[in-house]
């Protein structure tokens, strides 16, 4: 997979950061405005996919970013599971909202819901990116 023209490379280098920022905003404000972990995770994965598509796949870079996305996906899943188990350890039920709810329409409110959004965003974004990398650069990643 070789890269595209210099125009595409320049534009996507500028845009990818803003797309990543927008995805983070969607995840962090998931409990206040439309959006959440699933939508924001897909947008973050799209920013990385844009970079891979425009710059092409190089052997060393793809392998390391593939390892990173696998680690992040497992971390997201574990974080979600631990959040769910917190309720069990606190003496109530699975998935109980044990942290205080705070005032509505504040960024730090709604107990574990923002944390769960972050966990799901990590999981969805990293999972989608690792599927894409496995499909696009399977020659490099699966070789060893």
């Amino acid at each position: 997979m070789k890269g595209m023209s210099v125009i595409v490379k320049t534009i996507s280098r500028i845009l990818a950061g803003f797309i990543f920022l927008y995805g983070s905003y969607i995840i962090l404000h998931g409990h206040l405005t439309p959006g959440g972990g699933f939508a924001g995770g897909v947008i973050i994965a799209a920013s990385f996919i844009l970079l891979v598509l425009s710059f092409g796949a190089a052997e060393i870079k793809e392998k390391s970013s593939y390892t990173f996305s696998s680690i992040f996906e497992s971390l997201g899943g574990l974080m979600f599971l631990i959040l769910a188990l917190l309720g069990l350890f606190a003496g109530t039920f699975f998935f109980t909202n044990i942290i205080s709810k705070g005032a509505p329409l504040k960024l730090l409110s709604a107990g574990i819901i923002p944390l769960a959004n972050i966990a799901i965003g990590m999981k969805v974004g990293a999972g989608l990116l690792s599927i894409f990398l496995a499909l696009a650069a399977s020659h490099y990643i699966m070789k060893e």
């Binding site: 409990h31 206040l32 405005t33 439309p34 909202n97 705070g102 509505p104 107990g111 769960a116």
Partner: peptide, 13 residues
Amino acid sequence: TGATNIVAAIILD
């Protein structure tokens, strides 16, 4: 739940 986005309240709580 304290979440103003009702969708987030439902899917995560």
